[in-house]
Design a protein around this nucleic acid. Structure first.
Ligand SMILES: [Mn+2]
Ligand SMILES: [Mn+2]
Ligand SMILES: [Zn+2]
Ligand SMILES: [Zn+2]
Lengths: 140, 140
DNA sequence: ATTTAGATTGTAATGATTACATTTTTATTA
DNA sequence: TAATAAAAATGTAATCATTACAATCTAAAT
């Protein structure tokens, strides 16, 4: 879930040099209001009722465009499928190995101390934790 | 590449409650001596010459067992395929978006400041950076 | 109205991973 | 040792996410 509310998604897309087609607006809106980092399949299933002509390929194309324009991040914490996130601010992801749910958390990635030399150009920083979430550990 | 050298892989596997079959020893040895975080396919192709009866399924089964026993980590920085790492110490991965190479780097993950509550049980911490590596940025 | 670029779609292909049944090897016990 | 049981290894086929590619549609520009 993107924290900063965007009032007009069409204008926002235009400001990023993306033509705001109906499908693109709805896909971004859905992603922006999701908390669960949906997969392509989940996005497709959520919108096919409202946009009966939507194809999965369009969802793929749109998300790849959003990633290229840096308004969406790929989340690869899952092994076999990619998830997407409209919150491109620095934050970490926690995946519960029991229930599979993915949680956001704040992390001070900028101050993280590494031995990477200056000559590495860093475009994206991701932090993934795995373990057991509070609600799953309570059940034991 | 695992920094701490293991002199006898059979004994090491036994100490982790893993029966040291020939295939398991060779797969772990290959992973331990690799620097490139190989995929299942790369491991299979590297060993099929020496072990002509090896099947890809065995590589999958073996790696899943190693992960369960916590002597190998999954590296999901790639979108469509999982990579594996016999170095289970805390370190980060940098993927070059140009040449696709994956680099290790040291990172002080333990001191990373997060707002995750105490009730999250963390089993694994991963840090992934993306960008352009020095040798690729030199070419521009 | 014509042209052109971009947007959308569908079909088929690819490629990673898993399910499952079978065979082989190893360990245990009579 | 021989019989039995458990674990390891294998192969085939299925599943599923993703991509390639060609075709169609839309909307803006001339
Ligand atoms: Mn997130
Ligand atoms: Mn590594
Ligand atoms: Zn959980
Ligand atoms: Zn590079």
């Amino acid at each position: 879930m993107k924290e900063m509310k965007i009032d007009n998604i069409g204008d926002f897309l235009k400001s990023k040099n993306i033509k705001p087609s109906f499908q693109r607006i709805r896909i971004f809106e859905y992603l922006m209001n999701s908390i669960e980092h949906p997969t392509v399949d989940e996005i497709y299933k959520a919108l096919i009722g409202e946009i009966p002509t939507l194809s999965k390929t369009t969802v793929y194309n749109t998300l790849n465009l959003f990633i290229e324009k840096r308004i969406v991040h790929m989340v690869t914490i899952e092994e076999n499928e990619v998830r997407y996130d409209a919150d491109v601010s620095d934050h970490g992801h926690f995946k519960c190995d029991i229930c599979g749910k993915v949680y956001d958390f704040k992390a001070n990635i900028i101050e993280l101390d590494t031995d990477l030399s200056e000559s590495f150009i860093i475009n994206q920083k991701d932090i993934f934790f795995r373990g057991t979430c509070p609600s799953c550990s309570k059940k034991n």
